[in-house]
Design a protein around this nucleic acid. Structure first.
Lengths: 198, 198
DNA sequence: GTCTATAAATCGATAGAC
DNA sequence: GTCTATCGATTTATAGAC
């Protein structure tokens, strides 16, 4: 068997995996885990439902894979923000803009699926534990940025972790708000930062 | 048929309806609409699943009834806050405390089911429309409080509705955060009000 | 008013052909 | 690698007895 042939199959496999993952992310995010049918995922990318099981062990396997990927991306975003040049305030501005940028597309799906996954009672304790640790890791990154800002006298006093949670809660809350079709609101970084700025 | 007999049956019916509603609220809120089974609802209050259909037309009927009830309660809370004596700031403090008070019990379930219902794609457009109108009504109430505060120079300038959305987004976000089991955070009204205070 | 039994439909997962 | 056919389990909703 030539390596060329292997590479070709591998490419197809990667492509299908990506297609199914994206479709699943969107549907899980919009309808929740239980309400999303395998057949919906596959038909949305014009594949048979049987094929789903060539790429995922089960429905839950797909869900967990997607959620953990999203969390890893979140952690990376925070790390990127922290390594951004500029003041801690600039770094938070950068993170907020990143977080809201794709707010009409994939970014929003990722946002929503995270919240759902944490609130879901359908995942094993192990998975939940892993999720919590990853999320804590992201929060820790934000806390460090805030602590830096406190040292520079930019931000108000208080437990940096608690401030980070307030910051993220507002960010999540606004994203969720705009995910609905009631009234759209422009997300102003300045307004968000009022929460912690001196 | 004596009125006494009618009253007795009515009392039982009211009691069962309340039992089932409460159980359904908790389960819908925790697991979402699709993942909640009728048998779970009924067995959690030691009734047969068949009996469920004597009190609700369908699973969706129960869900919609509960969600609309929650929205009505929300509107009433805002109205109560607005009629509270004291400054607009005091009124928002009152509302925030109300909103977070039962945060470990029914209050939290109500909070979560609202978010789920808005994000769910399983409800008809009519129901969604009704929900949006009710929610807007509540936001309008908060906007009026904020507008009063602006006139008195208590709050920052800007569209009162937009500020109300920021305020509610943070409130929702914090509630959702505490609904998880990662890190509990004390909800400080003073910190929340930093968002809009001068 | 409440229960058990059952119908009817749905969906996750597997098997086997191409 | 992909599809169709199908099993098996689950679940909503109904029917009928007490």
């Amino acid at each position: 068997m030539s390596t060329k042939r292997i590479d070709k199959f591998q490419k197809i496999r990667d492509q299908r995996y990506e297609q199914l993952s994206q479709a699943a992310l969107q549907l899980f995010s919009s309808k929740g885990f239980a309400a999303t049918k395998i057949s919906e995922i596959t038909s949305s990318v014009n594949l048979s439902h049987g094929l789903f099981y060539h790429y995922f062990d089960s429905k839950e396997d797909a869900y967990v894979s997607i959620v953990l990927d999203v969390l890893d991306l979140f952690i990376r975003s925070v790390d990127d923000a922290a390594s951004q040049s500029g003041s801690p305030r600039d770094q938070l501005v950068w993170l907020t803009k990143m977080s809201h940028e794709g707010a009409t597309k994939k970014g929003l799906y990722r946002h929503v699926i995270l919240l759902q996954a944490f609130d879901s009672k359908e995942l094993s304790d192990e998975v939940k534990q892993t999720m919590s640790e990853k999320y804590k890791s992201a929060i820790d990154g934000i806390s460090r940025i805030i602590a830096n800002g406190q040292e520079q006298g930019l931000f108000i006093d208080g437990d940096p972790t608690e401030l980070a949670i307030y910051f993220m809660s507002l960010s999540h809350g606004l994203n969720l708000w705009n995910a609905r079709d009631i009234l759209q609101v422009e997300i102003s970084v300045d307004k968000v930062l009022r929460l912690i700025e001196r």
